[in-house]
């Protein structure tokens, strides 16, 4: 178990290094940083200023070393836009995104598992087909369009929740609902097939033979054992939620890391973009690592090996 955790941490560290290298290569080798930051039409003095600030006059290896060591110390340069260090700016926005992500997860997981289990109760029934189409809808919908439709119908027409802004329940429900639909679709399909696989196993026969109702068989026996494959796929959804957060935060004016990323991108603020990418991917890598460790711990077959 300890060896597993150590190996997993090393793996996470390698992925972090790859991520930082990709960011470095894309931003400073593939693209010309000066052109990214100030566009094509720029005065010579301004070009020199930017080159100095980004340290672009040094050899690439020196730049790479400085970039990587800086990142590991949590220093990702100074924002061109606010002229302040970038890392504090990003970390300040982090709680808003975590808040939105947690509410989304709390909405998505129970609902998805309930839908998946209901579908597995009677495969190919009308309920199963309806849930299947609903689930496919989740991966077929444009998130920002869903956001706009929710604003139009729920917030403007019905006047239930706020159209945009940051705060309690009345602010968080619509963005969280928008973000939750895609994971609901995917997890419910996953849950359905995992439960149907479980239902073929002998212990289910025993449960049925002792006279349990089909609902009890599915919800208490099969679901508990199907939890393991379901939990392993939740890791992928972390990236999905953060992916969607960029779009959804932009539509709802939610002051999180996603909105900051988009603002940094449209202001061509390269250091700030790099810092947001670092934080977002760092979050994904950490959550996946924790999920893996938790999953291994929860599964006795692996724990006692």
């Amino acid at each position: 178990m300890t060896i597993f955790i150590i190996r997993r941490i090393l793996q996470a560290a390698v992925v972090t290094l790859i991520t930082l290298s990709v960011v470095f290569v894309v931003g400073r080798v593939v693209g010309d940083p000066v052109r990214i930051v100030i566009g094509i039409e720029a005065e010579e003095t301004r070009v020199q200023e930017v080159r100095d600030q980004l340290g672009l006059n040094d050899p690439l290896t020196v730049q790479y070393w400085r970039f990587m060591t800086g990142a590991l110390r949590g220093e990702m340069g100074t924002s061109f836009w606010t002229r302040t260090p970038t890392m504090p700016m990003v970390l300040e926005r982090l709680p808003a995104t975590i808040y939105l992500g947690v509410v989304t997860a709390l909405l998505a997981f129970p609902l998805a598992i309930l839908l998946g289990a209901t579908a597995a109760l009677k495969p190919h029934s009308w309920a199963d087909r309806l849930i299947n189409v609903t689930a496919l809808g989740g991966v077929s919908i444009v998130e920002f369009w869903l956001a706009l439709m929710l604003i139009l119908v729920v917030a403007v027409q019905l006047g239930w929740f706020k159209t945009s802004g940051y705060g309690g329940v009345e602010y968080v429900v619509l963005p969280a609902l928008t973000l939750a639909y895609k994971p609901i679709g995917r997890i419910s399909q996953m849950a359905r097939s995992a439960i149907i696989d479980e239902l073929r196993k002998p212990y289910i026969k025993a449960a049925r033979a002792k006279g349990l109702s089909e609902k009890q068989v599915v919800f208490t026996h099969a679901l508990k054992n199907a939890a393991i494959p379901i939990i392993t796929t939740t890791g992928d959804e972390v990236a999905t939620i953060l992916n969607g957060a960029m779009v959804v935060e932009t539509v709802f004016g939610w002051p999180g890391v996603g909105l900051l990323t988009i603002n940094a991108l449209s202001r061509r603020d390269l250091p700030l973009v790099e810092a947001t990418v670092f934080v977002v991917t760092g979050m994904i890598i950490m959550t996946n690592m924790l999920l893996d460790v938790a999953y291994t711990y929860l599964n006795p077959r692996i724990r006692f090996q």
Partner: peptide
């Protein structure tokens, strides 16, 4: 690496370049 990376973020990063 790419499976765990939000694809929109990577796309935006490359488009910026």
């Amino acid at each position: 690496f790419q499976m765990g990376f939000p694809f929109l973020l990577l796309a935006l990063l490359v488009l910026l370049a």
